[in-house]
Each structure stands twice: as C-alpha cells, then as structure tokens.
Amino acid sequence: MKDLKKLIRYNKLWNYLFMIIGLLATMLGLILLCALMVDLAVDGAPRLSYKFLTSFPSRFPEEAGILSAWVGSFLLLLVTALAAIPLGIAAGIYLEEYGKKNWLTDIIEINIVNLAGVPSIVYGLLALGLFVYFLKFGESILTGGLTLALLILPMVIMATREAIRAIPNLIREASYALGATKWQTVQWHIIPYSTGGILTGIIIGLSRAIGETAPIITVGALTFIAFLPTSPISMDFPFVSFKWLMDPFTIMPIQMFNWVSRPQKEFQLNAAAAGIILMVMTLLMNGLAIYIRYRFRKKIKW
C-alpha cells in the first residue's frame, strides 16, 4: 500500500514537472521573438524618421534611407499579387470542384505539395534561367514580381482548397436542385463562402513574399539604387505607362541585407531600422489574416 502511494506520488511529480517543461519550451520561442523585437527596436528606433523613409541609399550612413527599397517592395508585391491570386484561386477551384479522381489530378496534387517544400532560392534559379535570360525580361520589377508569384502560388492554391473544402455538400446540392450550372454554383456560392479562408491565405502568402530575399538576389536585383522606377502615371497621352515593369529595382530585405553585411556599426543601425519596418509590415499582415479568419469563422455557421 505504501509502495503504491509512493508510485502515484512519483508519477504525479513527473506529470507536474513535464507541465512546467512544456510550458517553458512553448514560451521560449515567444520570449525569443520578443527579444528579437526589443533588440531591433533598441538599435534601430533612433534612426527611424521621415527622412529615413524619403531618402535614397547613400555612402554616408546618417543620410541613407529606404525610399527606393520600399517603393520597389511595393511594386514587386503588386505584380506578385496580380499574377498569383487569380492563378492560385482558379487552380484551387479546379482541384476541389472540377477535378476528377484520376492520375492527372493526383500528379497535380502531389506536385503542389512538393512545390511548397522547394527552397525559395531554387525558385530564384528558375527565374534567372527562365525570366531573365530565356524570356529576356532582364533584372526588372516584372521578373522579381513573377518570381515571388511562383513562390507563393502553392500557398494560395492550398489556402483556396482548404477554404472550399469546409463548405458542406448540401450547399452545392441546393444550388444544383434549383437548376444552377457548375460555374453558377461556384460563382454565386462557393467563391463567396470561401472568401474569408482564401483572403487569409493570400495575405499570409504576400507577407511571406515581402520578406523573401534570396530568390530576388538570385535574379540580380541591385543593392544600390538611387533612383525611382518610371512613374506609372504620366502627363502625356495615354497617361498610364508600364515602363516601370522593366526598370531595375531593390527591395526592403535586400537593402537590409546590404547594410547588415557592412562592417561599420552605423550601417548596421540602419539595417535595424529597416528591420523594424519589415517586422511591422509582416506582423500587421499576419495580424490582419488572423483577424479575418476569426471574423469569418464567427460569421458563418453551417
């Protein structure tokens, strides 16, 4: 009897010990995340100013800014979104609603899972061979944007599929029963009901695209750009110009990488300041994605 009580006490002790260890392990990641943000904030916050946002990079650290970098990031993201979103949603809809169970669909599915696991720098090499040299887009905003679009395409497809899968079959059957065709069902029911999930996936994909550095270095983005791309709006007819698509560019993470790799302390402080802005953008986008997911989950009850 005494032994049994001892055994129980011993087992319970281990149980409590593990609860503490598990909690600590879970918190460790969060603590590090906080340390990272505090470290960035301490180093970089003094450099943050309106001038930092509106100056070009410079040889003098205290005059350098990120104007060309954030404009480049923004334009790149625009191209990425325009290319990846329609393609990804269309592919997701096909696989969930139209795809028949055959070998071709199987191959497409396995392929998408595999693409999601391909290192980002390999996409950079693909883009270097395909966009820069084969299609002759050069080291342009178009090339960079399309590279990131390829990279986040699997994420958009998977998010779309997951969102569509959550819609119960009775919705489809009700629509067919009223005489709707497949596309009408998709257009009026499937797409509207899965908007929340799809939007969440898109935002998370774009937030990943904004921080991606390696593939864009590989396609040959420059690290020192002291001018802006051609303005998309002009005074002369036809008022809209797409010349900016072919302009050379730099982006936020590359600017930060360039500053980190310099030995001078002053440049590293600039890197921290650029890092703060990158982090804030990523966190805002992820926060928005979580909020949207939460809102839609609350709103729709099947």
Binding site: L30, I210, V260, A272, L283
Partner: peptide
Amino acid sequence: KPVLELLAAVPTVVYGYFALLF
C-alpha cells in the same frame, strides 16, 4: 498557436541580423 506561427513569418533577413549581431 497563431503567435508561435509568427516565428515562421519573420523575414529571414531579420533572423540573420539577430544571429550575427545579437
């Protein structure tokens, strides 16, 4: 869970800064 997932969302260049200088 979503907060932990932020660990994977931080741009890798920021992690590089953290590794080298912190």
